[in-house]
Write a protein that binds this DNA or RNA. Structure first.
Lengths: 139, 139
DNA sequence: TGTTACTGATACAGTTTCAGTTACATATTC
DNA sequence: GAATATGTAACTGAAACTGTATCAGTAACA
């Protein structure tokens, strides 16, 4: 996967929902409003909110006065959940397959993959200590 | 930056040099040999080895019997050095700029950027505990 | 000295991926 | 029924990467 802005857009959207006290369908925020605060295109926002909704982090509703709202308290939504919801990872690359028949060429990619997975895991663990509520703090 | 294979290629190349006991110009390994073990194209390898050379991790020499060799012991080359050498990062994306004039829209991106930097740092710290020598281990 | 072999760099084509945009079917409120 | 919103599909243009070919410079070796 190439470099994507999905994670930042998702994090920004959730923080904005929290700031708007959007905790139910009656306080839904439209994709146009979310997009205006980035700023980006409403369709880009909806592509992300659709994934967040499938992950159970937010609720969405079509129709007039529709939009998105949080399904959990901002303090309880961690950023690693957000990253997983938008199918992101640390993107350090995939190891080359290794030359067939070459003993060292076949062994190294396995260890490279393990190192990449370890780095990915460390990034996720760090993100698990940051919540959507933290994104609204000053400083 | 989009998804790049530079980091895996660099890690594989360094591990291969270590396995070949390439510790000096007289034991230089050509880009063709390195490429054959991935497998990929020699030019792709040279694009990476040129960066590793600039970072001081390997030496290279042109001409007949030329190629690349390690400038340090495999146990002392950590993978975060390798990642920095090829200009990689965790690639979680860049935060949106935020809407001008919107107080919340301007504050959130700063915290999102901080979260991304924290995740990146965690990944690098984890990589700093893995060396090129570890890539040659079994299992 | 001439041949061979290698690096580094540059340039190009093809592929992939993404943001942004338009369009449309569906759903909901008024 | 009109207005407004989501979700999704299709298209465009930009960006980045791989693979490839090519060339100048360099070094070993007969």
């Amino acid at each position: 996967m190439s470099d994507s802005q999905r994670f930042p857009v998702a994090a920004h959207a959730l923080a904005y929902l929290a700031h708007s006290n959007a905790y139910g369908p009656d306080a839904a925020v439209s994709s146009a409003s979310l997009a205006a605060s980035m700023p980006t295109n409403p369709v880009v926002v909806r592509r992300v909110t659709a994934m967040l909704a499938k992950a159970g982090l937010i609720g969405t509703r079509a129709g007039a006065a529709g939009g998105a709202w949080l399904l959990a308290a901002p303090q309880s939504i961690t950023l690693d959940q957000v990253l997983r919801a938008v199918n992101g990872c640390a993107h350090l690359g995939c190891p080359p397959p290794g030359a067939k028949g070459c003993p060292v060429g076949e062994k190294i990619p396995k260890q490279v993959a393990r190192a990449i997975a370890a780095a990915d895991s460390a990034a996720n663990q760090r993100l698990s200590t940051i919540t959507v509520a933290d994104l609204l703090k000053d400083g």
